[in-house]
Simulated assay, not measured.
Amino acid sequence: MALAARSAKTLNVEYVTDPVAIAEAGIMATPALLVNGKVVSQGKVLTESEIEELL
């Protein structure tokens, strides 16, 4: 969340725990990160710099 607060981009951050929603997104491993509806990372805890690169 700190990264979102510092970002010059407009970000919408959602914490999803619903297993059905997670499966519908095609996520097979958590944690996961979606950017513009596309899964860009799953099954790995990312560092802030890795997240910045994916955004």
Rank of each mutant, 00 (worst) to 15 (best):
P31H: 00
I27Y: 01
T10W: 03
N36T: 05
A21R: 13
L3P: 05
V45H: 07
E52H: 09
A21Y: 02
E24Y: 02
A32R: 07
I22D: 06
V45D: 03
S49L: 11
V13H: 04
L3E: 10
L34G: 01
K9Q: 15
E48V: 12
V39M: 06
E14R: 13
I22G: 06
E48S: 10
G37Y: 00
A25K: 11
T47A: 07
Q42C: 00
Q42L: 01
G37S: 02
V40L: 03
G26M: 04
T10M: 11
D18M: 08
E24V: 08
I51L: 02
R6K: 12
V13R: 02
M28H: 10
T47Y: 07
V13L: 09
V40K: 05
K44D: 07
I22M: 05
N36S: 06
P19N: 13
M28W: 04
S41L: 08
T47N: 06
L33R: 05
I27H: 07
A23F: 00
Y15V: 11
E50F: 01
I51S: 00
A5P: 04
A21P: 06
M1E: 14
V35M: 01
Q42P: 03
M1V: 11
E50T: 05
L33K: 03
R6D: 11
P31M: 00
L46T: 04
K44P: 02
A32V: 10
T30V: 15
A8F: 08
V20W: 12
G43Q: 03
E14N: 14
A2W: 07
E24A: 13
K9V: 12
M1Y: 12
V35R: 03
A32K: 09
A29L: 15
A32F: 05
L11I: 15
T47R: 09
G37E: 02
A29F: 13
A25N: 08
M1A: 14
D18W: 07
L54I: 02
D18Q: 04
V13I: 14
T30F: 04
L33E: 04
T47M: 06
K9L: 12
A2T: 14
E24I: 04
T17E: 09
E24F: 01
V45I: 10
I27P: 02
K38D: 05
E24Q: 15
I22S: 06
L54M: 09
V45G: 00
L3D: 11
V35G: 03
E14Q: 15
S7M: 02
L11S: 10
K44M: 05
V39N: 08
N36I: 03
L33G: 03
G43T: 07
V13C: 04
L11F: 13
A29I: 11
N12G: 10
E48R: 10
T17G: 05
T17H: 05
E14L: 12
V16I: 15
D18V: 08
L54W: 05
M28S: 12
A5G: 11
S41I: 08
T10R: 14
E24M: 09
L3R: 13
K38Q: 09
P19D: 15
L46N: 04
V39F: 04
E53G: 11
K9M: 11
T17P: 00
L3C: 09
V40T: 06
T17M: 01
V35L: 02
L33D: 01
V45A: 05
E53S: 14
P19S: 13
P31F: 00
E24K: 14
D18G: 07
V16W: 03
N12P: 02
P19Q: 13
A32P: 14
E53L: 08
T10D: 13
V35I: 09
